[in-house]
Design a protein around this nucleic acid. Structure first.
Lengths: 209, 209
DNA sequence: CGGTCAATACCACGATCGTGGTATTAATCG
DNA sequence: CGATTAATACCACGATCGTGGTATTGACCG
């Protein structure tokens, strides 16, 4: 069981210090090898094609684009790509979108390194691996209704401090329609008013500031 | 200029991978030495007393307490402690509070390692060092009025989706007083309604979710 | 081809919010 | 000791919001 080629790992993150930590960790494993790094989305996609790594560690927040978009971009060309999301953030919606887009694992940066290594090996072996902590996050909101795209758009406008009338003007719809959307948003999120809807939307990763 | 003792560095962060990266970076410098690490506040304070490091790298968000509280706790006993805040976050209020509490430097985790090394050396030499990117953040809101403690409290309640009447009940004051506070909050933050006030408060680090 | 859902739109009403004042008390500061 | 500031409180009014309905259109699904 010894002479298998090492797992070729690719790390994408805009924090140099974190990349450094990952590099040290990976290269200390006899069965792994860090073959490339990238600090933004454009670079990530290009370098992926160049190296075709076995496993990719992908940050969710990068300076130029969302990690999810990178995930989608890579998997549209390489559906077999084994990608693990690695992030500080734990909004259930982000997790769900990542998994739907085909992520094989989802890790928080504050988890112990052993967990990361474990997930890398499992994912390389073709499995999916979601830590319990994350999975329970997901289950918590499993039954919740999902906001439509339009509703998210409206919620974003609300977060910007716009009045219903302003939102209507900005989205080219009637004020009454805005109200309907907001009503649905509050129902789905369990919020008692628009302000709480924004707070919940932020906490769950539905909108960003 | 050669035989000075190395700068003794202490790193406090709850992300093991990041600590790993810092460790690798520091220990690669001939003039530095990582003498200890901690992953939470209680540990940080205890380990600090034990090692009395030359320079401390302190994360702003830790599982058990705020980095600022740790900063204050350490400096109340060791006013000479040279502490650099190292964080992902850039709300101007957090920065200001850290500097007021006596931080000698403030760095973002996505800055290049050379910057970190530079700041460590400068701070060890007794200087303060705030990168331009951060300083400009501060200047941006220099002239802004600062929320009082009570106002922050009220803003927190607003973010929780409470109505004025509910906030009044929770804080044991009249609804009219709540309104006055909210009016002041909106004026100070430049918000057009309570929802935007919450969004701005979150963005600027005045409140957390 | 019906069923469901998302998005659009309008109406009406009561609740809540935001704004304009004025005023008192306690604390802090120079 | 005056000056300032924060926190408290009340009033009144118009603006905005949230809720209850009802309805039409187009898209997607089985």
């Amino acid at each position: 069981m010894s002479n298998r080629p090492p797992i070729r790992v690719f790390s994408v993150d805009d924090h140099p210090l974190l990349r450094e930590g990952i590099a040290a960790l990976i290269n200390n494993q006899p069965d792994m090898e860090l073959v490339a790094e990238a600090a933004n989305g454009a670079e990530a996609i290009q370098v992926f094609k160049q190296h075709l790594p076995d496993v990719t560690l992908l940050d969710l927040r990068l300076p130029d684009m969302s990690g999810i978009d990178i995930l989608i971009a890579i998997r549209s060309e390489f559906p077999e790509a084994r990608i693990i999301m690695l992030t500080t953030f734990e909004g259930d919606v982000e997790i769900q979108r990542a998994l739907q887009a085909g992520a094989r694992g989802y890790l928080l940066k504050n988890m112990p390194p052993s967990e990361l290594l474990d997930v890398i090996r499992q994912v390389h072996a073709g499995k999916k691996r979601i830590p319990l902590e994350i999975a329970s996050q997901l289950l918590e909101h499993m039954s919740d209704e999902v906001l439509t795209e339009r509703e998210v758009e409206v919620l974003r406008e609300v977060a910007g401090g716009n009045r219903n009338r302003e939102i209507a003007a900005r989205l080219f719809i009637s004020e009454e329609t805005v109200k309907v959307h907001i009503k649905h948003i509050m129902e789905k999120l369990g919020a008692s008013d628009r302000t709480q809807a924004v707070a919940i939307g932020l906490r769950r990763g539905i909108i960003q500031l």
